[in-house]
Write a protein that binds this DNA or RNA. Sequence first.
DNA 1: TTTCTTTGCTAACGAACGTTAGGATTAGTA
DNA 2: TACTAATCCTAACGTTCGTTAGCAAAGAAA
Lengths: 196, 196
Amino acid sequence: METAQLSRKDQIDQTATALFRTRGFAATSMRELAAALGMEAGSIYSHIRSKEELLHRICFRLADEFFAGFDEASADDALPAAPRLRRAVESHVRVLTTDVAASAVFLHEWRHLSEPARTEFLALRERYETGFRELIAEGAAAGELYAPDPAFAALTLLASLNWLPSWYRPGGSLTPPDIAHRLANQLLFGLEVRGN
Amino acid sequence: METAQLSRKDQIDQTATALFRTRGFAATSMRELAAALGMEAGSIYSHIRSKEELLHRICFRLADEFFAGFDEASADDALPAAPRLRRAVESHVRVLTTDVAASAVFLHEWRHLSEPARTEFLALRERYETGFRELIAEGAAAGELYAPDPAFAALTLLASLNWLPSWYRPGGSLTPPDIAHRLANQLLFGLEVRGN
DNA sequence: TTTCTTTGCTAACGAACGTTAGGATTAGTA
DNA sequence: TACTAATCCTAACGTTCGTTAGCAAAGAAA
């Protein structure tokens, strides 16, 4: 019976992600990573160019996924801003829960990227936040959302979501869609104007 | 004119805090820290026992401050849960903004503590979160707050607050009390039952 | 069969790491 | 004056770091 059949390189990426998440990038040595893979440190370099390349790949792959999810969620021009924001929140949670370890690395370890990757990464993150900010601002302008300061609201909203990898454990009592729904509710019912 | 007049040890703590915050504990070397203080690496050990002692002091001092603030904010038994929660939120923000660098270290670098300090630290954090959870549950039971899942609500609330050190810069347009007020508003008006 | 790719090893490189020993200087105190 | 505490230095320790060179085995492709 054939299982996953990950290429060795993908196995390395995956194990590195788990280690970077729990011990941090700087505190994870190549020898540790090699041991977790059942090989020697030097051997890893048959598959990758450097330790930082591992981090780079993780961070930018996640960035891609966040963007793809957001673009799809917020694309529908016919929809009002509020439900598009809800969909964007749910997409964000989906990415976070689908790959918790990589998300944690994405959120916390990016600063160990060296230039110019680091600046590049921050620009991406800024662009992503702007997407949320504009969605909230649009909803506020239309009277759908209560957000006197959209930038502030966007920051707080993403903050709530991004804390998720620090407590979410796959296989808990809440499924990812549950979590997405509840988070969206808690955050949006605090934002949405209540009709009565 | 006499200024601060920090003891050398306090200067070391302070500089270490700033470095641990921006570069991370593991990625900060004692030689880097020494250079930032205008001295040699070996000289630091006239003042401290080890690198980890620095991290330990930062983390546990902050824990003390968070607890002291929370206890004071939530002590008044005559007050309903909702305003006590508001005061606790404001206290939390006050600690975060008073010492942003130390807060960031407290939030992100604790995992580089070795045992048993690490377990001890996590127990403290758990106890702190429980304080918020119980306050929210009390408010929910009294009908003051809308929180079908107090644990979930507490997590989300603290998440929003704890993201603050990653964007707050002292001297910005918002003063710490402003920020505390706005955050409490955005979070509590999402939690509080609206009377009409 | 030959060739190429994948995968891994051992051994080592130079650099950086946290930390220590031992001595020197200075300022305040008795 | 003698003593003490605070402060910092140089030089080095043993260890670990990321990475490389050179070689070898094994399977797929030609």
